[in-house]
Design a protein around this nucleic acid. Structure first.
Length: 424
RNA sequence: CGGGCUGUAGUAUACCGGUAGUACGCGUCCAUGGGGUGGAUGUAGACCGGGUUCGAUUCCCGGCAGCCCGACCA
């Protein structure tokens, strides 16, 4: 894409009403627009990042048998009354409204009840099981206090998958597959070395749920990590009993701040019984379906990546989620020969399948370089008069700042390889 | 939801009981052209309502909005 056609602009100054690093940088670089507190629009660059994260998650969900679908934002009151979660005393994040005929509706803050109700249409026999359905959905939550930029908003994108299995054994098997799939997702987006499977409260349903916690100082959670055993325990459930059960001692646990980027948990048969989701087994006996729920905060994950990788010059995206692989900068747009060279390189990179953002604007070189740092695309390729004279192209990695001089052919081959490796 | 703070051009800020200045942006012109260049010139602003006052952007009250701390966060 030509940068001259991007309607977004970078800003030198951070907005005064944002404290969080992720929001400041994403707004300055033109990735998001704040509509109101805790509500952000995703602009062309930001949307590309969201879509890249979704693509990775989608691939991993499909690998374990997930089927993608999409539920509704408007939800009827009755569904939630059946499980006691319509009452504001039990769920304090509801946005509620009424239809013209007076019927109560809620805006989806979660989708367990609607999807489980829907499954009554499709699950009647053991032959219909298992079902693993998932969606990417905008969740609406009336948080008392939005904070931390896109990390905790009133409107955000979440991937939620629900598993419907015939018994605990089948559930456990899938639950473990999902645990591995989640770890794979976090590894692919570049957070593998600092994201831990974390034992957390299982609420009314099971002893534990499992969170995926990424270590970062901006995090709202406190967890105790055993890096050696690659597990962590949320502070909320840390007791001598739990440590003994998990085979760790207090001495090997390190206290750190972290952000919850994923969460998986078991409902057992409780919700199925409440809502009447039953099936007939091989012997004709009616049994409740076993339910599991698995979430990844897509936009929160994006914020987490900003918080962890950004530096003092701006954003730094891992290749797997970057909006573009290459940022091509034409520093001397008034020089015809140089411009023709850059135009041709832009075309050839695209033909080779590389996502390129081409800064063809007439701005000063310094501005373009500073903007490139702020926008944070992994590889910056600079074309100026010097380039043509030297016959070598200057390619700089955003993350390390390291510059290589390469031939045109080497550049295209390398960029194409990187594109395939991360987005193939 | 408890506590604290703040609302001034598109953005970031300053001053002031006598209706506002700067920087960036945006427009035009000249110079410049590899790390936010220099100069000239133009453009654009007091959240809303009420009160006090000769006069309110400034003081007071209410509303709305935003931020921070805490609580909350299957």
């Amino acid at each position: 894409m030509r940068q001259s056609q991007l309607f977004t602009k970078t800003r030198k100054q951070a907005p005064s009403d944002e404290e969080a690093k992720n929001a400041q940088l994403l707004i300055r670089a033109g990735y998001v627009h704040k509509q109101m507190a805790g509500v952000y629009a995703y602009l062309p660059l930001g949307l590309r990042v969201v879509e890249n994260i979704k693509k990775i998650v989608r691939e991993e969900m499909n690998k374990v048998g997930g089927e993608e679908m999409i539920m509704t934002s408007l939800q009827p009151k009755e569904l939630w009354e059946s499980t006691g979660r319509w009452d504001d005393a039990n769920v304090d994040v509801w946005f509620k409204s009424k239809l013209k005929n007076g019927a109560d509706v809620g805006f989806g803050w979660s989708h367990e009840e609607p999807i489980t109700d829907m499954m009554k249409q499709f699950i009647a026999s053991y032959r219909d099981l298992p079902v693993y359905a998932y969606q990417f959905q905008t969740k609406l939550r009336n948080e008392l206090r939005a904070k931390s930029g896109i990390m905790r908003g009133r409107e955000f994108v979440m991937k939620d998958l629900y598993s419907y299995t015939k018994d605990e054994a089948a559930h456990k098997e899938f639950y473990e597959k999902m645990t591995a799939a989640y770890l794979k997702v976090f590894e692919r987006v570049g957070l593998g070395d600092r994201t831990y499977l974390t034992f957390a409260s299982g609420g009314a349903f099971t002893q534990f749920s499992h969170e995926f916690q990424t270590i970062t100082d901006i995090g709202e959670d406190t967890i105790y990590v055993s890096k050696e055993k690659e597990i962590a325990i949320n502070k909320e459930v840390l007791t001598d009993e739990v440590m003994a059960q998990l085979g760790v001692s207090r001495d090997e646990l390190e206290e750190v701040k972290s952000i919850e980027v994923g969460n998986i948990f078991s409902f057992g048969d409780v919700k199925s019984k409440q809502m009447g989701l039953m099936y007939k087994d091989e012997s004709g006996e009616e049994k409740p379906v076993i339910l599991g729920s698995y979430g990844i905060g897509i936009t929160r994950l994006m914020g987490t990546l900003v918080e962890i990788f950004a530096d003092d010059k701006g954003l730094v995206w891992p290749e797997a989620v970057a909006p573009f692989m290459v940022h091509l900068l034409l520093l001397t747009p008034d020089d015809e020969a140089t411009k023709a060279y850059a135009d041709a390189l832009y075309e050839d990179l695209q033909k080779a399948g590389v996502d390129v953002l081409y800064d063809d604007r007439s701005n000063r070189a310094g501005e373009k370089l500073a903007d490139a740092d702020l926008i944070g695309i992994p590889a910056r390729v600079v074309i100026g008069k010097n380039t043509i004279e030297a016959g070598k192209i200057e390619s700089t990695y955003r993350r390390t700042g390291q510059t290589n001089l390469v031939s045109r052919e080497e550049l295209i081959a390398f960029a194409s390889g990187a594109q395939k490796a991360h987005h193939g």
